[in-house]
Design a protein around this nucleic acid. Structure first.
Lengths: 249, 249
DNA sequence: ATCAAAACAGCAAAAACTTGCAAAAAATCC
DNA sequence: GGATTTTTTGCAAGTTTTTGCTGTTTTGAT
């Protein structure tokens, strides 16, 4: 294998997952950790990535720069993604909806973490296919143009015949009274079926979206098992959600 | 063997695989490693490729642009795509398989050309979603990691319940005797179901793939209605395919 | 403060590269 | 055609690069 190939692989991985561990790289590339270390050092010198203790990250990652509001939001989502991934177990069969937060979860899953994932989201599917140990099943149906999300009877029917360990709902607006709400009725149908098909449901929400209500209701908070935000679980902003039997992470 | 031929071969290999090892070249060309080294050094000086330790890479190798610098093949595929699009009618319901040639077709469809497309290929689906007038239905199933193509019983079942105007088969190897062949058995199953579900079938093939045979057979040429290549329909290279009731475009 | 993991520095073996050179092949000239 | 020049090719000796391993130091988390 050429050094250039190795470095390209490393760069691809960094861009794909925001961060990588040297150990994982060494194993994936079948070279010693020293070689990977040297490669990363070089790439760092060329400003292609940022070397950190134990691994490497892409630029803009963990950059809490105030000027760029987007990176700020991104870091919140990454925080959520980290928490979410830590809730997964190897070999689980899970459902994942769409949304950028869920996309971060997909990016954060370790390279050799066996999993079976069903999803109606094109973006999620594409991202997950980067992971060799993840079996990806796409829930086919009519695709929405902007969201790249599959909707319609086909999806719901497929979900009705499914029983999985876990459902991870990405997007969505959250409110203690109104529960989980959406502005798209078609998406509601799919998400409801997803919740039904799963033993446990996790919802991910950046704190900005808490206490906001949309047109249609997906479910009440009692149907949800776990809530993941970027906040400390003890944060007072989350008090409104404590009356439900939620595990707050 | 002439030096010129050798260097042409080297360039072809680099363009095809984006990288080559000097050792492989020396073996393939049956010359000493020094000769290859000198050739590569020359080509590097002429900026035709980039010499690296142990081999050579094409330019843009490190640019993670994904789009290959396979320009000569690409131009053929674009030619095919143009011809194919001209065969479509507004409002048709069609099936599209995967492959880079079909991807060019998807890129070539005019922005306001109403169409309904069913596909098991992630790449094709993503591309088609750029077109506001195209309704995209994804045939869900288990996704292959490299090809991003949905396979398995779910796909085949969905196809069995479908009846569309047209099926456009992208990849695949073509031979007058052997018919349409593939190296992946799972993909065969899906393609066969696609052909069954369509009234008419068009196959796209760059002339390089004509007269090549793979392990498994998708169908015979009698089941196909139209063959699109980048060649002139009267080209003698296509003579072998005329005995069938094909429309050659 | 402690301890395990990660980084570093130095070293040695293997692979790749360079240079110089001579034989072989090709081109040129008479 | 034959001699001569030029180019090309393969080989050998010496140099550089790459890589994995050793032991040591640093780092980060508890």
């Amino acid at each position: 294998m050429l050094k250039e190939e190795r470095q390209k692989f490393i760069l691809d991985q960094v861009h794909l997952h925001h961060r990588v561990l040297l150990n994982d790289l060494a194993e994936a590339l079948e070279v010693s950790i020293d070689t990977v270390r040297r490669d990363v050092k070089e790439l760092d010198k060329e400003k292609k990535l940022k070397k950190v203790h134990g691994g490497a990250t892409s630029f803009g990652f963990m950059n809490f720069s105030k000027e760029d509001g987007n990176t700020y939001l991104l870091s919140k989502k990454i925080k959520i993604a980290e928490k979410t991934v830590s809730l997964l177990s190897e070999g689980q069969v899970i459902l994942m909806s769409g949304g950028t937060t869920n996309l971060e979860v997909a990016k954060m899953i370790p390279r050799k973490f066996p999993l079976t994932v069903f999803t109606p989201s094109l973006h999620i599917a594409v991202q997950l296919l980067e992971l060799p140990e993840v079996e990806v099943f796409f829930l086919g149906g009519k695709l929405q143009h902007e969201s790249k999300f599959a909707i319609g009877g086909t999806v719901v029917n497929a979900l009705n015949r499914l029983k999985v360990d876990l459902c991870i709902l990405g997007t969505g607006y959250l409110d203690a009274e109104a529960g989980l709400t959406e502005f798209d009725w078609e998406v509601i149908q799919v998400k409801q079926a997803m919740i039904q098909a799963a033993k446990r449901t996790i919802i991910l929400s950046v704190s900005d979206k808490l206490h906001s209500v949309q047109k249609y209701r997906t479910c009440s908070l009692t149907e949800v098992d776990t809530l993941v935000t970027e906040l400390d679980p003890m944060d007072t902003k989350l008090d409104a959600f404590r009356p439900f039997h939620l595990k707050i992470v």
